[in-house]
Computed example of a mutant assay.
Amino acid sequence: MTDTTIAVLVGSLRAESTNRKLAEILVAQAPEGVTVEIVDGLDQVPFYNEDLDNPSDIPAAAARLRDQIGRADRVLAVTPEYNATMPAVLNNAIDWVSRPYGQGAVFGKPFGVVGATPTPYGGKWAHEDALKSAKIAGAVPVEDVTVSQSALEVDVLTDPDVLAKLTNAVRVLADYDTESSAA
């Protein structure tokens, strides 16, 4: 696929986050014809509250999030695992882009999840939860993209096998055929 934009939601706010660094690697190593853009400012998006979700006065950070996801062709979460599930910041972002239900910015968009965490499971549960939440929000989960990598035995930022799996995940997400999946 050519001219595809993938918006990346990073599930960690930490400045030295391994997952943020992985997202930056994916931006730098995007396949030809694919633009990978990290959605910044998730720390500025208030917790979803329907009282705040007023079209005439939506919080600016939430409006920017919806706009960036709305302009993207695909969405990729790059996230660690917190207490056996996805981080609150990622869940909150999915909540904001899921509204209005059935018409949210993520509706109908292919959605994948990758990431690393210093546990033996590599974020598996967080990734499953993120896919489930995105699916309920109306996104199209692309399970072939999921890469849950343990950071216990390898340096995920330099290991060629890990980086190959992650860049391949971006390629699979970019090439995902939404028309044949709807059939």
Rank of each mutant, 00 (worst) to 15 (best):
S181V: 15
E179M: 13
Q29M: 04
A62C: 05
A105L: 03
E16Q: 15
R171V: 08
S133I: 06
Q149D: 07
T18S: 00
M1E: 14
E24I: 08
A61T: 06
F107M: 13
R71L: 09
A88Y: 08
A164H: 13
V162D: 05
E32C: 09
P120K: 11
R66H: 09
A174Y: 08
E24W: 00
T146D: 01
P80R: 07
G70I: 13
P59S: 10
L90N: 02
Y176Q: 07
V154L: 04
E37W: 00
F47C: 05
E37Q: 15
D53G: 07
P31W: 07
I94Y: 13
Y48S: 09
D177W: 08
T117F: 02
A151S: 15
E179A: 15
P141Q: 05
S150V: 04
V97N: 04
A60F: 03
V27I: 13
A169I: 09
R64P: 06
F111G: 05
D57Y: 00
S12M: 00
K165D: 15
K109H: 11
F47T: 12
V162L: 02
E153S: 14
S181P: 01
V170Q: 04
K124W: 02
P141S: 02
F111W: 06
D129Y: 13
A84Q: 15
D57F: 01
Y121D: 09
A62G: 03
L26K: 10
A62K: 00
V45W: 11
D40V: 09
A7F: 12
L65H: 06
G11M: 02
D51N: 14
I136Y: 15
A84G: 04
A60N: 07
Q149I: 12
E81L: 11
P31M: 08
T4Q: 14
P118V: 01
L42Y: 12
V106W: 07
L13N: 10
N83E: 02
S181G: 11
A77N: 02
K135Y: 14
G33Y: 14
G11Y: 05
D53R: 13
A30F: 12
L76E: 01
A88W: 02
T178N: 11
L152E: 08
R74I: 01
E128W: 04
A93K: 12
V154W: 09
R14P: 00
V8Q: 00
L163G: 04
A164S: 14
K132G: 12
A23N: 06
T79Y: 00
A7Y: 12
Q29A: 15
L76P: 05
N19G: 08
N19Q: 07
R14W: 04
L90P: 10
S150Y: 03
I136V: 15
F111D: 01
K124V: 13
L131T: 01
L157G: 03
A63N: 00
Q29V: 00
V172D: 10
P100M: 05
A7D: 04
E128M: 11
R74V: 02
W125N: 14
P100H: 06
V142Y: 06
A151F: 05
P120R: 07
A30Q: 01
V75S: 04
G104W: 09
V78R: 08
L166A: 00
V34R: 07
A130R: 03
A30K: 10
F47D: 08
D95L: 03
